[in-house]
Amino acid sequence: MVMNVGILALQGAVREHADLVEACGHEAVPIKRVEELKYIDGLILPGGESTTMRRLMDRYGFTEALRRSSLPMFGTCAGLILLAADVTDRSGGHLGKLDITVARNSFGRQVDSFEAQLDVKGIDEKAEAVFIRAPHIVSVGSGVDILSETGGKIVAVRSEHHLGISFHPELTDSTVFHQYFIDMVESHAAETTR
């Protein structure tokens, strides 16, 4: 069945995510208003500036709506920060979907941004990973599965129907992470309609 995968379209790399969702054979839906959340089966929080996105989320009621929402969610980079329960340099996290603590810009400034090939649990091929002023996951709570690490830092995690990664699969042509998330969305949809 074709899933409707929303992409929070307040700011950031929205089109790149949409292209990969469509390459997986599913429908990509840019989400600019809270009312639009009811038409989707899962939501991607894209890369961008987390500070900016959070301000816009507050202004348009997304913060509360998403905290209450049971949608499967997938966050990349800034999106990972938004999903975290705690962020090291601010009091109170954002959406609290993943029981993790993240540190922002933890690989340095833009000149330190990098690409690497990563092993990811549950994905057979080496993943191309583009890190841009990326956050990393400092610690995880129980029930959070660590999917990947680089240089001793956790960079990908999953907990039930929430997936968070430090890097940007949307800047590559590979659909592996989007397919992984869509599989999560499909099984969540099957469970909730049962």
Binding site: Q11, R15, G48, E49, R133
Partner: peptide
């Protein structure tokens, strides 16, 4: 180039 992609819509 990716860094600029993250600034889109901003």
């Amino acid at each position: 180039r990716g860094m600029a992609e993250m600034q889109k819509g901003g």
